[in-house]
Amino acid sequence: MATKQEQQFNEIQKKNLEAAMRLAQLSIENSQRIMELQVGTAKSLFEEGVANAKALSGVKDPAEALSLRTAYAQATTEKMLSCAREIAEITSKTQAEVGKMVTEQLTGGGQDVVDSFQKLFKGLPIGDHNALGSIQAAMDTARAAYEQMTKASADAFQAFTKITPKK
């Protein structure tokens, strides 16, 4: 029969496994979105390229050909930048969701670990409250550092998505 501590650690492991499965599902879904976007963009660019080549083959005036090539290049660049922005937005949203999940895990899981250690220390003949405080401080520091990194990354992605092409 499992001891109470083993049951608590098994429960923590179960929560971590569930979080890992949610993270894997989120990763798969967002990878699919990005691949669909890339395939759609590539297909569109290919079709436009074929149409552009046909249009250019009928042009006799070099100035008109140059004008058409410039317009096609600008349209292609704008389409590529739009695709990059959409990928950045998907990535930013995913990162926010992952950040939320990790924060929940750090908060909930961290508290579970601290609670388990408290119960463990209470069962010992000599209780070391300094060790428990150190564990709690380490968990709080890790959580704060992760939140700062998540915010900085989200800000960077947001700045990228606001870049507009010069016309």
Rank of each mutant, 00 (worst) to 15 (best):
T77V: 10
G58D: 15
C83M: 13
C83H: 07
P62D: 13
A55L: 10
P62Q: 08
A63R: 02
A51H: 04
A53Y: 06
R69M: 15
F46P: 05
A51V: 06
A53Q: 10
E48T: 09
F46L: 13
S67K: 08
F46V: 12
T76Y: 07
T76M: 07
Y72A: 15
A84H: 10
N52T: 13
K60M: 04
A55I: 03
T70M: 04
A73L: 03
A53D: 15
P62I: 00
S57L: 04
L66N: 12
C83K: 01
L45H: 10
E64Y: 03
Q74L: 10
F46W: 07
L81R: 02
P62Y: 06
S82N: 11
A73S: 13
K79W: 10
A75W: 00
L81K: 05
A53H: 03
L45Y: 01
T76E: 12
V59D: 01
V50R: 03
F46D: 13
A55K: 14
M80D: 14
Y72F: 10
L56P: 07
A55N: 13
S67E: 13
L56C: 05
S57V: 04
G49Q: 06
A75T: 09
V50A: 05
A84Y: 15
N52S: 14
L45F: 01
A73K: 00
L81G: 07
E78F: 00
T70S: 08
Q74T: 11
D61H: 04
L81H: 04
A84V: 01
F46A: 14
S82G: 14
R69W: 06
T70H: 11
K54G: 12
G49C: 06
L45W: 05
C83W: 05
L68E: 07
G58Q: 10
L68A: 08
A71W: 05
M80E: 15
C83A: 14
E78S: 04
V59W: 00
L45T: 03
R69P: 13
T77S: 08
A53T: 11
L81T: 05
